[in-house]
Write a protein that binds this DNA or RNA. Structure first.
Lengths: 237, 237
DNA sequence: AAGTGGTCTAGACCACGTC
DNA sequence: ACGTGGTCTAGACCACTTT
């Protein structure tokens, strides 16, 4: 494990357990150097991670302020899988695999998903329930070239855990788009609802070598949908 | 201007104008050092900014790949003001100030907005139209302690431009929450619609010294709403 | 004036992908 | 084997806040 990662984890832990309470200052970079016996640069890398995740805010001349974790500063943003989320939030959740097929991309699907025409992809349809409430319908397309094998069992658990753990893939980034759409008859049937609208999250997900391995349409019941984000202002566009 | 900022701007420009085209590699860090006559660390800081904004992806052993700017990789996320957005997208947009008042926070409002009870805040209600379509209803609460003066004229243009430009405030980060909510009679009247639902974006916005200066409820017509995001996977939560 | 984080430098070695 | 980016170090000076 990299040093700055370890320091980040340690500091994160200490912030979440209020060893470093909200509205107080972390030890100075100088002191952290002494505590962890590393160079200042390494400390600063760890602090950068804390900053990106909204755990601290640096104030020049003062120090690193621990931020209050308001109500729900959970990483609903930032490319977190459903499985990880439900675990982090300690939700009793259930996944049902509606179908799992190997299909060939046609030109329409190619435009939609970003996969090349004629390529093979897994199509996985799943519903997720939280405390017995059917809340989400996920339709995933996963590159067969990158994921040669996929079973219902893995799809029921966490596909991301399988990809990162078993296959050692390095998931890097995603382009997402959130809109509200009218429901189709198919949607209403699978989600067992008469709702007229649902929240649609389309995302293309890429590996660190920039290969796209996933396209997903995630459909949420509007009354069950909440997206929480921590955003930093990006000056100069 | 800081060196790494200037290098970032220069590289961004060259990527957007396809001097460095998508799917090609940037010059190596070594070469960039020679080009800009700076240390490697400074180059790496500039590349980090490009990475965060989804313009490049670094691949170890290969180099920095320029990413395709899919359809709309616009910064709808990342704390961008309405005014900046409509400018970036070149939209003919119009803002109407419905009301502008100085009010005192009561305990209910305090819970909602995050401002202290009994403190004074500006309440600004605005509607925005894009190509003649009334699309958004914004309700802003702005700290009077931080913003002593605010006029209808500034509210009609861009409050952010006023705060950063005139007042020299350093807007740093926000906590946001997106949900879909039923419309109230008031909503329907102000937005001139009969829609049953709207998209609600609540956000608390903070300065770099961690003072909260703004709470906003931004209500979007569902058929006009689109949220686009570029997200990087955050390992280790 | 003292102490803090912010920027910049120069150099070393490692991990990974390509040839 | 080579070249790439990734990590880590040590030190310098600047900008800002606090005392």
């Amino acid at each position: 494990m990299k040093k700055y990662q370890e320091i980040f984890n340690d500091l994160k832990e200490k912030i979440l357990t209020a060893i470093y309470p909200a509205d107080t200052l972390l030890p100075t970079e100088k002191k952290l150097q002494d505590i962890y016996h590393v160079s200042r640069d390494t400390i600063r890398k760890a602090l950068t991670l804390l900053t990106e995740r909204g755990l601290i805010q640096k104030v020049q001349g003062r120090g690193s302020l621990v931020l209050r974790q308001e109500l729900l500063n959970f990483p609903v943003s930032g490319l977190t899988s459903y499985q990880e989320l439900s675990q982090a939030l300690n939700l009793a959740s259930q996944t049902r695999v509606v179908s799992l097929d190997l299909i060939t991309i046609n030109s329409n699907l190619s435009r939609l998903t970003g996969f090349e025409a004629h390529s093979q992809v897994w199509k996985v349809v799943r519903t997720r329930s939280i405390r017995g409430n059917l809340s989400v319908l996920d339709i995933d397309y996963l590159s067969h070239a990158i994921i040669p094998h996929l079973s219902k069992e893995e799809a029921e658990k966490s596909i991301y855990a399988y990809l990162e753990g078993e296959l050692g893939l390095d998931i890097a980034y995603a382009q997402k788009e959130i809109t509200v759409e009218p429901t189709s008859q198919e949607d209403r049937k699978l989600m067992k609802t008469q709702d007229k609208y649902l929240v649609l999250i389309k995302s293309r997900v890429f590996l660190s070598n920039t290969q796209q391995f996933q396209y997903t349409e995630s459909k949420h019941k509007i009354d069950r949908f909440k997206f929480v984000d921590f955003a930093r202002r990006k000056h100069s566009l």
